[in-house]
């Protein structure tokens, strides 16, 4: 079993639904996106192009971040996933240096600390801490306890974090949340080892390519077709 993903660029409409679903699922602070994007604008008026490329951890078979991590915090897990163990992370940033895709983020600040503030805008408004107390939740009202079962909801300052393919959801047979949230069904997750899985078939049919294949990292997120229509 080797989990992989296919992203159909023609179906993708660049809405970032995946980004927000990921934030909601994984309780990432505002300035950290596990699921993120590369945006490119090119051309000159009026021949302009704009492309949106959804990115996340590529869960490389030969993951440079795993090799570089001194403490095995970054490690390979079941199904070929590249996982991160918060508790072992010492914040050396070796994984960030080694990741050729720029998809690992560092908690420079203590995440979600804005919810500790107890100042409101007026006498009758909420304050962050009152909202947190009234709504509930660990660290912020948006923290998802389902995620908290296998990864701390409140990450420590001075540690890294990144996409882990929603390993907690895969474990119970659910798709990563970005896959379910995509309105265009542009994302498919499945077993790359199974030649009959949808991902394998799509990669074959459309000659899917991962990012920076020349590096030989064995990254497992494949892209098919074009964001911009062919006859542009």
């Amino acid at each position: 079993m080797r989990y992989g993903m296919v992203i159909d660029q023609q179906k993708c409409v660049g809405c970032a639904g995946c980004v927000f679903a990921c934030k909601a699922e994984n309780h990432t602070p505002p300035e950290i996106n596990w699921c993120d994007k590369i945006i490119t604008s090119s051309g000159q008026f009026p021949d302009v192009r704009f492309e949106y490329l959804s990115t996340m951890c590529n869960h490389c078979d030969d993951a440079p971040c795993v090799k570089g991590c001194p403490t095995q915090a970054m490690h390979k897990g079941e199904g070929g996933l590249t996982l991160h163990e918060q508790e072992k992370c010492i914040g050396c940033k070796a994984c960030m240096e080694n990741c050729p895709y720029g998809v690992i983020s560092f908690n420079w600040q203590r995440p979600h600390q804005e919810w500790q503030e107890n100042k409101g805008l007026a006498a009758g408004t909420f304050t962050p801490s009152v909202m947190l107390a009234e709504a509930g939740g660990e660290g912020s009202p948006l923290s998802n306890p389902e995620r908290g079962g296998s990864y701390p909801l409140m990450r420590s300052r001075g540690t890294v974090e990144k996409c882990n393919f929603c390993d907690h959801r895969l474990k119970v047979g659910l798709n990563p949340v970005c896959v379910d949230a995509c309105p265009s069904n542009a994302r498919v997750v499945g077993d790359l080892d199974d030649p009959n899985s949808e991902v394998s078939m799509l990669i074959r049919k459309y000659d899917g390519k991962p990012l920076k294949p020349e590096l030989g990292t064995g990254s497992k997120v494949f892209y098919i077709r074009r964001y911009t229509p062919e006859n542009r």
Binding site: V66, G68, P70, T71, I90, G91, C92
Partner: peptide, 25 residues
């Protein structure tokens, strides 16, 4: 640089032999 004196110490305890940083440390 690493934000904590203890981070440096903990490096030693769960070794990853393929990590240059581990070897360096």
């Amino acid at each position: 640089e690493m934000g904590s004196p203890l981070h440096v110490v903990w490096l030693l305890f769960s070794p990853n032999l393929s990590s240059p940083i581990w070897w360096m440390g």
